[in-house]
Amino acid sequence: MIKITVCIGSSCHLKGSREIVNSLEEFLITHNLKDEVELSGSFCMDHCMEGVCVKLNNQIFSLTPRDTEKFFNDEILRRLYK
């Protein structure tokens, strides 16, 4: 199982974490992956200056809402279907 954790702390919230969570939820439903990917939120992950902090398993990414689809395709789908 892949685990995605999105920071929902105040800094990341202001940078669009809610939009990112909503997009990831939509992509998981569209691709029927709710049973293969665990999506959760977390407060500050200590990368506030870099954008919305998203942890994929143990790797940290910094996203904006417009990067979310590319992140999903390049990182999540690639790991599930390699």
Rank of each mutant, 00 (worst) to 15 (best):
V6F: 08
F27S: 05
H47M: 08
L14V: 12
H13R: 14
R18T: 04
M1W: 06
V37Y: 12
C12G: 07
T64I: 04
R78F: 13
D74Q: 08
L24I: 14
L39H: 03
C7Q: 03
G16T: 04
V52Y: 03
S11Y: 15
M45R: 08
H31N: 13
N58F: 05
F72M: 05
I29M: 09
D46S: 14
I29Q: 14
S40Q: 12
I8T: 15
G16Q: 06
L39D: 02
E36C: 08
D67W: 04
S10W: 06
G41V: 00
E36P: 00
S10H: 09
E69D: 02
D46L: 14
S23L: 10
S40M: 12
E19S: 15
E50R: 15
P65R: 10
L24S: 06
L80E: 01
I4L: 14
N58W: 10
V6M: 04
R78L: 12
L39W: 08
I60D: 04
L28W: 03
R18V: 03
C48N: 07
L14S: 14
L77T: 10
K34N: 06
L63P: 01
R18M: 00
K3Q: 07
I60A: 09
S42M: 09
K82T: 11
R78N: 14
S10P: 02
C48D: 06
M1F: 04
C53P: 00
S10G: 02
T68K: 07
V21E: 05
V6S: 01
K34F: 00
H47T: 10
N58E: 15
